[in-house]
Design a protein around this nucleic acid. Structure first.
Length: 488
RNA sequence: CGGGAUGUAGCUCAGUCCGGUAGAGUACUCGUCUGGGGGACGAGUGGUCGCAGGUUCAAAUCCUGUCAUCCCGACCA
């Protein structure tokens, strides 16, 4: 049967598109740049969301919801911010349709023009800070630690499912603090939460670091980022946490009285991760046979396939095994479809990335065994049916840690030091990945390198070591190495 | 937003150059035989040819516009 997925070697982009489509993560929609997230893709996002939400709550945050629409005037209040987003905003200009007089359908009613146009949020800093102004008077109102789960719209020129879509789902945290130090601590705390989530749940190793001025969020004083490396050697910015200083507090006049009865502007952070993480998950682990989902985020962790079909005696045993697994907290599904053949199902579950498949047949019943197949390595073993629940529980842990280790090894192999432009370019062309190189700290050098090689500074790593050297471009003195890569 | 390509059955595509009432494979439905890695045979269902105009006795085919997708750039998470 046609194995419909393009191989990674053949065409990495096409491979990614094939996985998204064939595994049933998402479909294109009738609207340019927007996707329909299908049940499997959405279930993965729901699992991510549930875990992140718990982690935010654990660190003292609460959820709220702010409007989709932002008055146009709000967006222009913070100069850097508006410059960053103005080019990609959807604008609502009217509020009514009418029948076209020529009978050809509906048209915008010109008499229903809005007094003030509304922007569909590309991010919510402005409307949130406009609101916080009313919520904050005293240091006793601080810190204010709020998150929202929402959709946002950025009118992108070129889109790709999950990685960059015109509309996407995300969470955006917006916090207000009494001091600069506390706000920076908050931004770092969330940075840490993101990194932990990526590694512990997505099995996606990330480099923690700070963005250069060029790559920083519009309106931020400092942007902390987690950067992951995809299988094609390109980096993916997977989550950012911003220290906003007093920029938004000043723009929206958010002040509080401190303990000494003095008025001060509050200090702010914002932070977000999006459905882009689903794309990162795909590109971190999946292979030419389809999706590979780490167990902790897999909607179905174990599937039991009766062989050759769901006969009563097989199903009885399957139900018992499923019950034992459920008792251990495993998300298990029994395939009860009598029409499809086992071979077809095997291929299908591999395509959909189910971490563990149990094959239970008549022969197994006779022998008291069951076949266990793991998705990540494609290994199959036949084990004693009696201990299958404990075996599978352990196997899920092994798969989770195995995926992380494999991704770490890949990253280690694809992180290279370069000390001059020739090496830099050579490495970039031949194997890609992260390149650790000296940089003089100027925006000019950074932009020039980008122009010459398409590689950007992904981050100034947290584990930045003081090391004397000279910038690979300008030759000027550098205090240490930063990480470059081509990025999504 | 520029350059290139493509839209015909759920999917992959032929037919378009040279206009004449819509094709294949696969999937799907039913039946029989099957059954430990994408089954075999037989019989069926399924398409206003992306959309809107135009030319013509006649348009999947020619012309104009438009929408969408893919690849390559520029821009960005």
């Amino acid at each position: 049967m046609a194995k419909a997925i393009t191989t990674r070697e053949e065409n990495y982009s096409q491979w990614y598109n094939d996985i998204v489509k064939k595994a049933g993560l998402a479909d294109h929609s009738a609207v340019r740049g927007c996707m329909v997230i299908k049940p499997l893709g959405f279930a993965i996002w729901e699992n991510m969301k549930a875990q992140l939400d718990a982690m935010f709550k654990d660190t003292g945050h609460v959820n709220a919801y702010f409007p989709l629409f932002i008055p146009k005037s709000f967006l222009s209040k913070e100069a850097d911010h508006v410059e960053g987003f103005a080019k990609e905003c959807a604008v609502v200009t009217h509020h009514r349709l009418m029948n076209n007089p020529d009978g050809s359908g509906v048209v915008v009613d010109p008499s229903a023009k809005l007094e003030e146009e509304l922007i569909v949020r590309p991010t919510s800093e402005t409307i949130i800070w406009n609101t916080y102004k009313d919520w904050i008077q005293s240091y006793r109102d601080l810190p204010l630690l709020i998150n929202q789960w929402a959709n946002v719209v950025r009118w992108e020129m070129r889109t790709r499912p999950f990685l960059r879509t015109a509309e996407f789902l995300w969470q955006e945290g917006h916090t207000a603090h009494a001091t600069r130090e506390e706000a920076i601590e908050e931004a770092k705390l969330i940075h840490e939460v993101y990194a932990r989530f990526a590694e512990d749940y997505m099995a996606m190793p990330v480099i923690k670091g700070a963005k250069s001025a060029n790559e920083r969020f519009a309106g931020a004083e400092e942007t902390y980022t987690i950067e992951a490396l995809m299988q094609d050697g390109k980096a993916l910015q997977a989550g950012t946490s911003h220290f906003l200083g007093q920029n938004f507090a000043k723009a929206f006049d958010v002040k509080f009285l401190n303990e000494n009865n003095q008025e001060e502007h509050v200090w702010a952070t914002s932070w977000g991760v999006s459905t882009r993480l689903v794309g990162g998950l795909v590109m971190s682990h999946s292979d030419d046979d389809g999706l590979v989902i780490p167990p902790r985020l897999a909607p179905t962790q174990v599937v039991i396939v009766p062989i050759p079909k769901p006969l009563p005696e097989i199903m009885e045993k399957a139900e018992a095994i499923a019950a034992a697994l459920k008792a251990k907290g495993v998300r298990v599904k029994i395939d009860k479809d009598a029409k499809k053949r086992p071979g077809f199902k095997f291929a299908q579950y591999e395509l959909e990335g189910v971490p563990v498949r149990l094959g239970l047949g008549k022969r197994d019943l006779a022998n008291g065994t069951i076949e266990v197949a793991r998705r990540d390595t494609k290994e199959k073993v036949s084990i004693d049916i009696a201990g299958v629940d404990r075996y599978v529980e352990q196997l899920l842990h092994d798969i989770q840690s195995g995926l992380l280790q494999k991704a770490k090894d890949y990253r280690t192999e694809h992180t290279t030091e370069a000390d001059n432009m020739d090496d830099f370019r050579g490495t970039l062309d031949e194997k890609g990945g992260f390149i650790s190189a000296h940089w003089d700290g100027t925006a000019e050098s950074e932009l020039k390198i980008k122009e010459m090689t398409k590689a950007t500074i992904r981050c100034i790593p947290n584990d930045f070591k003081e090391e004397k050297g000279s910038c690979i471009l300008s030759g000027k003195p550098s205090k240490g190495r930063v990480l470059f890569a081509k990025a999504y």
